[in-house]
Amino acid sequence: MYTSLFMTIISIIVLPCIILIPSNAYTVPEEVRALEFIKDANINRSINWQRALASWTCPTDADDSDEGCDPCSRDWSGNWEHIQCRGAGGRYGEGSIGHYDGYVTTVHVTDAHLDGPPAKEWCLLTHLRELDLDGGNQNGPFPEWIPKCHPQLQELDLSFNRLTGRIPNNIRKKETLQEFKVEHNYFSGPVPAILGGMPNLWRVRLAYNHFEGTIPESWRNMSGNLNQLDISHNHISGNLSVLAFFKLMYASVHSNAGLCGMVPESIRYASGYNPSGTGLGHPC
């Protein structure tokens, strides 16, 4: 399934051996070629894709470029809309320590109404720390290629789309992940236990989906870092005892009719707590 895409990746990486590389180019040459490939593969998918990628042209702004085609620009902001090249960074995906190396670290295509399945060609950007595709009309299942393609990924945002099905088990490979946001989709199945295998998560948003069942025991592994949780508007049932030892700053659990039992202090005193539409506080 992925053979042709990865052969393309290999050819893009190998090409520097036979192409003259501009000595002063700020954006790493293989990143330029990867971005051009992404554009060519998707710009004709729909009018929304055309609008989103309209700024991906060369030459780039001479006052903010070290070469004629410099999508990254001289700082982190990017000459091409929706991408940023933040260089070496700290925690939480968007962080940067001001050392820019010409690699794309952020794809931030929000509220662009992109349609169709998420583009597999994002796989070509192997230095991503943030993949943010929220606010579109993207459909189909969760993109299983994400855990395979972005080894440094810290933030994943697929919220406000029309994605369906279950969260795949291979997402557990993303131990680097710190933010997992899939709210306002049509995901279903059990509350994903595999999130408990990602101990660096500090923000999880699952609201407005069709998740069901109880909070998995594996989530106890997230108690050290998780401080923002939104599981509202699902079909989650049972008690919240698994979350008793969390230190949550924000917690939203309302509109889960099957929730019941005692409310842990970690939930009751967190910002955003609202028991409406649940049986919390009543025996299970």
Rank of each mutant, 00 (worst) to 15 (best):
T106S: 03
C149M: 04
T105S: 02
N139T: 15
R91L: 10
G165K: 13
T164G: 00
W122C: 01
V104G: 05
L153H: 08
A112T: 07
E130L: 15
R51G: 14
C72K: 12
I171V: 15
H108W: 05
W80G: 10
C72D: 06
G136S: 10
P117M: 09
R166T: 14
R86K: 15
Q178F: 01
P168G: 00
P117E: 14
L125A: 03
C149K: 08
Q50A: 14
I146V: 15
L158Y: 07
D115C: 03
T105N: 03
C69L: 09
R166Y: 04
G136P: 01
D61A: 13
P141F: 02
P71C: 11
E94L: 15
S77D: 13
N48G: 00
H82A: 13
S65V: 06
I146N: 09
E121S: 14
H150Q: 04
S46L: 09
T176C: 07
T110R: 14
W49N: 05
P143Y: 07
F180D: 09
N185K: 11
G78A: 04
E144D: 11
D157K: 09
I83D: 04
E94R: 04
P141I: 05
H108Q: 10
I47M: 06
G95S: 15
G102Y: 06
G102T: 11
P168F: 07
Q138T: 03
T106V: 15
L156E: 10
F160T: 05
V107Y: 01
E130K: 10
V182L: 10
L158K: 03
R74Y: 02
A52C: 13
H127S: 14
I47V: 14
A88E: 10
L163A: 01
K174V: 13
L131Q: 06
D132I: 11
D134L: 00
G68T: 11
R74N: 08
E81V: 04
G89K: 01
C69G: 06
A119H: 05
W56E: 02
L163G: 00
S55Y: 00
K174S: 14
P71F: 09
A54W: 00
L158I: 02
Y103H: 15
S65M: 09
S73Q: 09
Q152W: 11
N48R: 10
T60L: 03
Y103N: 12
R91M: 01
T106A: 03
S96R: 01
S188V: 03
P151G: 09
S188L: 05
E175A: 13
D70N: 14
E175V: 15
